[in-house]
Design a protein around this nucleic acid. Structure first.
Lengths: 251, 251
DNA sequence: TGACCTTTGTTCATATATCGCACATATTGT
DNA sequence: ACAATATGTGCGATATATGAACAAAGGTCA
């Protein structure tokens, strides 16, 4: 790609949108400039553009994103076949095992939920399509990382901010790589309260018709009702069953 | 705002993202140019920029959005307090009445789901945060339109593509305005299979602490198990109860 | 209170990058 | 093989980014 095939004004604008986050819903111009590394004048122009187009509100001091911004992400969720294909299978699965079932793909060091059938909320975190979790300590993340060539998964682990969410969280890259090898071997991953105390989950990869791993599905359950040791014997077959059914439907 | 406070490259790029939709997941350069009205060269530069940044994949012919694009919408969902505040109330409500409960806001002529607690799927459409429905024939849409000044709601109806989803769909603007007056009067809206045969729903507005309507919540139920006439007597009080509790929490 | 300092927002001139056109090339379908 | 359609590229005209200078708001302390 040539230098001139890149619209930096567009790239800067996208950076500005991403500056808004969980902890920073209301941003002044200077905040955005700091968060994005853009010049204050440039940040201001991007923000005013967002406001002009109705993607943000501006009260003269702070900018706030409007729901119109959801059109952008929705373009993916509605346009991509995967979420639509997977959803009914998750619904059936969730009802069958009476636990939440989800599907996700990898985006950098994070898993991104693309579909979900929630039975009953067991996590303090509220997950929905578009939600993100660090891959290294999520069951679907382990499965997706395990599907990558070793050098790539190692690179992603190194990029990750490996912190302990609970006393059980694995954070040593070496131990994590061993665990990924184990996951690859056995074809599924179990997480025992590494992300949140009281929550266990089990995930399997979803392969497309050519055998490439394109996503992962999981079942989450309260540790109190389903000890980690029982996750596999209860849920592995239902998960594998869905993966088998989906294999021919995905490309 | 001055002319120079607008970054048209950014605006063009956003248009390109929105060109991807339900029926058009894979777009070639010329498709995007046609859909957006942009010059081919410009569309190409925007698309290559998206690909370069990892928001899209390019196989040399077609562009497809990647899950990274969800970061943009997620910036809103995670940054805006409303979805987080409302979610637990929806969960409780859905469990209590054993039906799906949702919350939405208005974006132009559409309602946008910002939170949802699904009990069991009764609709053929799969709704999730970010999903959109035409306001004129959705219960939350009626409530949100009714909360606007008459000239604004009329303007939105005129902008809407008023089509019949089912034989029961109201499409006459005059009848719709009468219905909105009725909804405003009684403080809730009931939809009886106007969007999809077999689906009824009832919605109430969510006011903030200053009395401004900031969103709507609804309960959807299969017409077979809950006739439209019974929607109000069964679900109006639970919905009103949630609205009352939330009033002091919203601003 | 008021003088001073700091932070934030806005404006401007100019160097730089992007747009859109026209043309060249490649791909597709018949 | 040809027409039709789609994609790639060079260039002048136009739009945008930059960084410094200015203005305004907010905070601090005597």
């Amino acid at each position: 790609m040539r230098e001139t095939d890149f619209v930096s004004g567009f790239a800067r604008g996208l950076k500005v949108i991403e500056a808004f986050g969980e902890t920073t819903p209301r941003l002044a111009i200077a905040d955005v400039a700091k968060a994005t590394g853009l010049d204050r004048a440039t940040a201001r122009r991007c923000l005013l553009t967002l406001a002009e187009l109705g993607y943000a509100d501006y009260d003269g001091k702070f900018f706030v994103l409007t729901p119109k911004i959801l059109r952008l992400g929705h373009a993916y969720l509605s346009a991509t076949p995967l979420p639509h294909i997977v959803q009914p299978f998750l619904d059936k699965l969730a009802e069958e095992v009476r636990q939440s079932a989800s599907a996700s793909v990898l985006d950098g060091t994070e898993v991104v939920y693309i579909a979900r059938a929630s039975q009953k909320r067991v996590m303090s975190i509220n997950l929905m399509p578009g939600s993100r979790l660090p891959a290294y300590c999520a069951s679907m993340g382990r499965v997706l990382l395990a599907a990558l060539p070793e050098n790539e998964s190692l690179a992603l682990l190194k990029q990750s901010n490996l912190k302990s969410f609970t006393p059980r969280t694995l954070t040593d890259p070496v131990r994590l790589m061993e665990e990924l090898a184990h996951v690859r071997e056995q074809g599924f991953a179990v997480i025992d309260q590494e992300l949140e105390l009281g929550l266990c989950s089990i995930a399997v990869p979803l392969e497309n018709d050519r055998g490439r791993v394109v996503a992962a599905i999981n079942i989450g359950a309260p540790a109190a009702s389903v000890p980690a040791a029982e996750m596999a014997e209860r849920y592995l077959e239902p998960l594998k069953g869905v993966a088998r059914l989906l294999k021919s439907l995905l490309r």
